[in-house]
């Protein structure tokens, strides 16, 4: 069982960049993107992230935008709905569509634009992290950023066993299908309920076996992780400069309206 996003995470050109810097970079950009009053800042963040992911990390643009189309799928309808149907105070453009009078308001247009730019910047930030950072490194970054151990250990185990259980699930589902388990709606329901019970029981069994295996390697209730993360000084400098500039732009554009 493989996810193509995962494969890029292990093979992209930025995989060796310090993961702590990546996480910090993404977190601060998400925060700046959300708190900015004008769409300019989120838009700059969006462009930077796309540049970093496609040009610097060398992720194929096609795969990247396939993932990007998912948030756009709801952001664009929401954008249209906001400018036409949410109402506002400053009328801007009015036109007739098949006898319906449609009114566009300046303030709602600004709001809609801000909303879409925030969606774009947030999504691009998370995709950057997802495409360039393997899960293993994210957990060690979380550890260095002092997230409680129990959360890291759980997320690590869950991540690993998603693939194992998913694999088992596909096999069981296939075996049900080959014995015509999903031919009618009623049979499908029955098969699905059997499948989910079984997967649950299997997962429990796996857990027990894993515990025995871990105890055989002297498990004492705490999973220690090997983590290594070296911060490159230039990268850090670039990060600080970028965030400083973003903060300046955010301050300068705080009262800016597009229309």
């Amino acid at each position: 069982m493989r996810l193509f996003m995962e494969e890029y995470a292990y093979s992209n050109a930025l995989k060796n960049t310090s993961v702590r810097l990546k996480v910090l970079f993404v977190l601060s950009n998400v925060i700046f993107g959300v708190f900015s009053n004008s769409p300019i800042v989120p838009f700059i963040i969006f462009c930077t992230m796309v540049f970093l992911t496609i040009v610097m990390a060398k992720i194929p643009a096609r795969d990247y935008f396939t993932w990007f189309s998912i948030p756009l799928f709801y952001a664009i309808p929401l954008f249209l709905a906001m400018i036409f149907f949410f109402g506002g105070f400053e009328p801007w453009i009015q036109f007739n569509l098949l006898g319906f009078k449609l009114m566009m308001y300046k303030d709602s247009f600004n709001n809609a634009l801000l909303m879409v730019s925030r969606v774009l910047s947030g999504t691009s930030c998370l995709l950057f992290l997802a495409f360039t950072t393997p899960m293993a490194k994210i957990s060690s970054a979380l550890k260095l950023l002092k997230v409680p151990d129990i959360i890291i250990e759980l997320s690590m185990l869950i991540y690993r066993y998603i693939f194992v259980v998913l694999d088992e699930l596909t096999r069981m589902e296939l075996s049900q299908r080959t014995r015509l388990g999903y031919t009618t709606f009623k049979k499908s329901l029955n098969s699905l309920s059997l499948l989910s019970t079984n997967v649950f029981i299997r997962a429990m069994n796996r857990g027990e076996k894993l515990h025995i295996a871990m105890e055989s390697r002297c498990y004492n209730g705490k999973i220690e992780l090997l983590d290594e993360d070296s911060i490159h000084k230039l990268t850090m400098l670039a990060l600080i400069t970028f965030e400083g500039l973003i903060f300046m732009v955010m301050y300068l554009t705080k009262d800016l309206r597009i229309v």
Partner: peptide
């Protein structure tokens, strides 16, 4: 049943 960590080395 035995390998649980996110990478081989870990």
């Amino acid at each position: 049943d035995q390998i649980f960590a996110p990478t081989v080395k870990q």
